[in-house]
């Protein structure tokens, strides 16, 4: 079985990555298994300065998943470069740096800091975090998103992935604007804005009031958006949202994802990423595919047709 897949010029040995914010910078999972098994690692969002994150309560349960409003607590660029990246660099896996900040200048500072560092395979621009005040600023307006992407494009030669929010009316329009501005790939989806109410305390469970929904509950939303993006755009998509089995991963590939990321599932099963790699191999075989490439967009004829025309 050929599990290797290419996204934006990066060859992943298999299409299973870990999603940003559900894996820290890899240290904890490394106590459980060899990170070199993974196709790639998308690290927790990194901002220019250290961020405190939101006050607790940050987590609530939800049917088929959870809500979170962590608020991008992270140690900042310098700590990432001096402590976290050197740790990850020792593994034979592709490290994708999730970048976040309040404004263009902040994004650019992180991108410039990461650019040229050994062991960084790509940058993922997080313009889709629903849990910080200005997190969706760039997503709400495709022109604004394109403006940011164009500037980042100038600042680095690293492959550029833009993470798409499901909390917009037209994710394809947003994705198209990013592609035209120089994005090499898209990742989708980030969490879906939601809320939980605590009846006893008569207020929202989460201190930030709203939180992002993730886990199996959002899988249909993720599949729909990945399908639409792959159908309309030429750049590859990394699919995520509720993947907890090899079967789920295969569904994303067939919808049009070139690779997938596993997020919330690692809370329920810390070994989910390596497990899913094994399961995916068997699922591909059972479905009659000889490679990840064959499965790609197998359920999305428009996407396949477009690549053949091109």
């Amino acid at each position: 079985m050929e599990l290797a897949t290419e996204v934006a010029g990066i060859t992943f040995k298999n299409p299973v990555l870990t999603a940003s914010g559900t894996f820290g910078y890899g240290r904890e999972a490394a106590e459980l298994y060899d990170l070199s098994l993974l196709g790639g690692v998308m690290v927790k969002g990194v901002s220019r300065e250290p961020w405190s994150g939101n006050p607790p309560i940050r987590i609530a349960r939800a049917p088929g998943g959870m809500l979170n409003a962590i608020g991008l607590q992270n140690p900042g660029l310098e700590h990432f470069l001096t402590v976290d990246l050197p740790f990850l660099r020792d593994y034979d896996t592709k490290v994708i740096v999730n970048v976040v900040d309040h404004d263009e200048e902040g994004f650019l500072a992180v991108v410039r800091g990461v650019d040229g560092q050994r062991g960084v395979a790509a940058i993922e621009l997080n313009i889709s975090c629903p849990n910080v005040a200005d997190g969706l600023l760039f997503s709400q307006d495709p022109d604004r998103a394109a403006g940011l992407v164009a500037k980042v494009r100038q600042a680095t030669r690293l492959p550029l992935i833009v993470k798409i929010s499901p909390n917009v009316t037209d994710p394809v329009g947003l994705g198209r604007a990013c592609a035209q501005a120089g994005a090499d790939a898209l990742s989708a989806i980030n969490t879906v804005l939601g809320m939980a109410i605590d009846v006893e305390r008569r207020r929202p469970v989460i201190a930030n009031r709203t939180g992002g929904l993730s886990g199996p509950a959002v899988k249909p939303v993720g599949l729909r958006i990945v399908y639409d993006l792959a159908r309309a755009l030429d750049i590859p998509v990394i699919g995520m949202g509720g993947i907890e089995s090899g079967r789920d991963a295969l569904e994303y590939l067939m919808a049009g994802a070139r690779a997938v990321a596993v997020g919330t599932a690692v809370f329920r099963d810390p070994l989910a990423p390596p497990r899913i790699i094994g399961e995916l191999e068997r699922e591909l075989e059972a479905a009659g595919f000889a490679s990840v490439g064959e499965a790609w967009a197998a359920a999305n004829p428009d996407a396949r047709r477009r690549t053949q025309d091109a």
């Binding site: 914010g21 559900t22 894996f23 820290g24 240290r27 904890e28 999972a29 927790k44 300065e49 250290p50 961020w51 405190s52 994150g53 939101n54 006050p55 607790p56 309560i57 940050r58 987590i59 609530a60 959870m66 979170n68 962590i70 607590q73 992270n74 140690p75 900042g76 700590h79 919330t264 690692v266 809370f267 810390p270």
Partner: peptide, 29 residues
Amino acid sequence: AMACGYGVCLGCAVERKSPDPELGAYGTY
């Protein structure tokens, strides 16, 4: 409130009384 229990989600924050100044705002929780 915890999601992972092993340190990867940052969901289980508690405020520190005297954060490590080296960590900046990151050390708040």
